[in-house]
Amino acid sequence: MIRPYTDHDADAVVSIWRAASERAHPFLSIPFLDAEAENVRNIYPQFAEIWVLEDDGKPIGFIALLNAEVGAIFLQPKHHGQGHGRAMMDFAVAKRGAVTLDVFKANAIGRVFYDRYGFRQVGEYVHEASGQEMLTLAFTPA
């Protein structure tokens, strides 16, 4: 079930984000991840439309939308490969139609997922806060 985020989801969302980030982003420093975890908890919910994916009543993933941009999509690593990421992206596409997102160029896990989903690269830049190369990807439903 995908449902709207509430303030009660903050701990679960930060935990999901941290576990998935540590797996997909081993190139990011611990201080960067620590600072970003605070943003996930305190800043992003103010600006993004966040949806939580539950399994047996427990949050296992989330997706954040900023208009037609997927600002975040994260899933507990033990749930990877079960169609949950696709379900969240399908949900976003059903709500917004064409969507864009940014992904770290070194994020092999995310890039494989986005390639399989049908995203195409439309830009590239350097993420100032981390110094990492980023790709901007776009998806347009058929």
Rank of each mutant, 00 (worst) to 15 (best):
R41Y: 13
R116T: 07
D55K: 14
K95S: 11
D9A: 13
E38I: 00
L65Y: 05
G97M: 06
A98I: 05
I73N: 00
Q76A: 15
R41P: 12
D34W: 08
I43H: 11
A35Y: 11
V52Y: 06
L65F: 10
G97W: 05
M89G: 05
R111D: 01
F27R: 04
D11H: 10
F91H: 13
R116L: 06
V70T: 14
L65D: 08
R86S: 13
S130R: 07
P4V: 09
Q132L: 00
H79D: 02
S130Y: 10
D102I: 09
L135D: 14
G131S: 02
R86E: 08
P59W: 06
T140H: 06
F139N: 00
P45D: 07
E22P: 00
G61V: 01
K95M: 13
A108T: 10
R96E: 13
W51F: 15
A129H: 09
F91P: 06
Y125N: 08
R23P: 00
V14E: 09
S130E: 07
A108E: 12
F74Q: 01
A12T: 03
T6Y: 06
Q121F: 02
G81H: 06
H127A: 03
A72E: 03
G110K: 05
K95F: 02
I109R: 05
V122P: 08
F62N: 04
R86L: 04
L28R: 13
T6C: 00
F139D: 01
V103M: 05
S29K: 10
D90L: 10
L137C: 09
G83F: 08
K105H: 14
A10T: 15
P26L: 02
Y125I: 00
N107A: 03
